[in-house]
């Protein structure tokens, strides 16, 4: 199960004065089991890019291969692809429509032509994965809180049993607590279900502690494709394109500049605390 993107470009409003190169010659591979953070400023082409991955948009030039097959070849079943490459859009709660949460989550499996029993089984399983308590399952999705609605909507994609799950800004509009809940849930899903995750965000702090590979997009191009440590060590370049490294990176850099011999490739607050404590008393001012 692998997704290969081969030199794709995408042009909006082709042939008019407003023509925009949303994607500019992107090539990369998404192998199994990675947790990928896709980061970029608003308008960098992230959302366009992820719609290429499940065949919702066709590239202007270039190809997308799923297990070696071109997804825009005639006869390729793109609906099957959309089950394997699950895409959770921004504000996914805006897609809810059924009378109760369970039926809404069953919508995806039903479209795959599964039996009623199987649909229900998958829906129940997906709702458990997103930690939505059973008491909400037969409620109207519109009676749920914003965070609960979002989890129900993510369950709706998860119930299709994707092997790659793409989440486009899943924390947009949530408070810090809701944000952590969603991100921890995503990490839990990756570990339990052994699926590949692509987490799209404009915030480095969101992806820093979860991703093991970070893609940085700018003006339709992939500018960096590396481990978080390597990407964040180039924080000056990130700033130039309107992004920033996680706040801990700045603190560690600052301490080092002021003479404390700490490591700077640190991504989480906990690691930072340990590192600083380990060097306690070494600073002579």
């Amino acid at each position: 199960m692998s997704l290969k993107i081969d030199d794709i470009t995408y042009v909006y409003e082709k042939g008019t004065a407003m023509s925009v190169n949303a994607l500019d010659h992107i090539s990369l591979e998404i192998p199994d089991g990675q947790f990928i953070g896709l980061v970029g400023h608003t308008g960098s082409g992230k959302s366009t890019f992820v719609q290429m991955l499940n065949g919702l948009l066709a590239p202007t030039t270039g190809h997308v291969y799923w297990n070696g097959q071109d997804v825009h070849e005639k006869g390729f079943d793109r609906r099957k692809l959309r089950a394997s490459v699950g895409l959770v859009f921004q504000y996914p709660e805006h897609q809810l429509f059924e009378a109760d949460v369970l039926s809404d989550v069953e919508f995806g499996p039903k479209n795959l032509g599964l039996s009623e029993a199987e649909c229900k089984e998958r829906a129940v399983e997906a709702l458990r994965h997103v930690n939505l308590p059973e008491e909400f399952w037969d409620k109207s999705p519109f009676d749920l809180s914003g965070g609960q609605q979002r989890r129900a909507a993510i369950a709706g994609v998860l119930a299709m049993h994707p092997s790659i799950l793409i989440l486009d800004e899943p924390t947009a509009g949530l408070d810090p607590l809701g944000r952590d809940e969603i991100l921890n849930m995503v990490r839990g899903m990756k570990e339990k279900l052994r699926i590949t995750i692509v987490l799209v965000s404009h915030s480095m702090d969101d992806v820093a502690q979860y991703a093991d590979r970070i893609l940085v997009m700018n003006a339709g191009k992939i500018m960096m494709d590396d481990t978080p440590e390597k990407v964040f060590s180039r924080y000056k370049e990130l700033e130039a394109i309107g992004l920033s490294a996680p706040q801990v990176v700045y603190i560690m850099q600052y301490l080092k500049e002021r003479g404390l011999p700490v490591k700077t490739n640190i991504l989480t607050v906990d690691e930072a605390v340990d590192e600083i404590l380990a060097h306690r008393g070494e600073l002579n001012v």
């Binding site: 919702l56 859009f89 897609q95």
Partner: peptide, 13 residues
């Protein structure tokens, strides 16, 4: 357009 795409991502035809 957005809702259509979101439902298509859930296999809607």
């Amino acid at each position: 357009d957005k809702i259509m795409k979101a439902q298509m991502a859930r296999g809607a035809d």
